[in-house]
């Protein structure tokens, strides 16, 4: 199949970027989206041009590296699928395809389609963990966890931190990501001791990084390759307001 790509090219963080068009002459419907880009890049390299820089690692939908907005949708048009797991059969011969980086002040572009998602790491450092102090580990079965909570915690923990929620949100809000991380620990007994401080610190860090404020449009939920539910945002709001007004935390 033949395609016309319109790709964001930007040499460095400070450089002015622009959309540049490329013809892909021979793409197979069986290729993944990233393989299609690999083919184009080989072409570019052979012509002595700078290949398109994009993030990728696992190529099996679990690492969350392959951040690109395809035709206005993070990770492209297929529901619950990362860009690396998207196949060219989802497109038609002759299609125009727009490829852009995540757009958010908190995710500065490093080069072409690669953005710096360090903001997510700093949010996790602010509280997205359980401090396990040393001592003999007790038997796992000593801590009863309702099946329902375990399932919900697992649903939240499916978040791969790719940032598609931020890219999809018109406000570049990170609330789906943060709520998934807050919820999966708040739902489990091990997360209880640090529950209030965790949500306060993580939301505080999220605001400090310059992410926007949710306006309840749920574009994040629609874009999430792991289909994390926006119900977790409501849970985070409840946790945060509870921690602010009803805990002793300053």
């Amino acid at each position: 199949m033949k395609l016309k790509l319109h790709v964001w090219r930007q040499k460095s963080p400070k450089a002015q970027g622009k959309m540049t068009s490329y013809d892909v002459k021979q793409a197979s419907p069986d290729m993944s989206f990233l393989e299609m880009l690999d083919v184009l890049n080989e072409d570019l390299a052979q012509k002595g041009e700078d290949p398109i820089a994009f993030d990728h690692d696992c190529r099996e939908g679990i690492c969350g590296s392959c951040s690109m907005v395809i035709n206005g949708q993070p990770h492209g048009p297929e529901q619950g699928t990362t860009a690396c797991q998207l196949h060219m059969r989802k497109f038609k011969d002759g299609d125009d395809i727009f490829i852009e980086p995540w757009r958010a002040k908190a995710f500065p572009v490093l080069k072409d389609l690669i953005v710096d998602r360090g903001a997510f790491d700093r949010i996790i450092q602010a509280g997205g963990f359980v401090s396990v102090n040393t001592g003999g580990a007790q038997d796992a079965n000593c801590i009863p966890i309702p099946k329902h909570n375990a399932d919900l915690a697992m649903d939240a923990a499916a978040c791969i931190g790719c940032g598609a929620c931020v890219a999809a949100c018109k406000n570049s809000s990170a609330m789906l990501f943060v709520s998934a991380k807050v919820s999966h620990l708040a739902l489990l007994p091990q997360g209880q001791p640090e529950k209030t401080r965790r949500v306060l610190n993580m939301v505080n860090q999220m605001d400090k990084e310059g992410f926007g404020n949710c306006t309840n449009q749920y574009e994040c939920e629609a874009a999430c390759p792991k289909e994390i539910s926006a119900n977790f945002i409501a849970k985070m709001n409840r946790e945060y307001l509870g921690a602010s007004f009803f805990s002793q935390e300053e």
């Binding site: 319109h6 907005v69 757009r103 749920y218 574009e219």
Partner: peptide, 8 residues
């Protein structure tokens, strides 16, 4: 974005 598609 140069192109933005809303889903929901």
């Amino acid at each position: 974005y140069a192109k933005k598609t809303y889903r929901r």
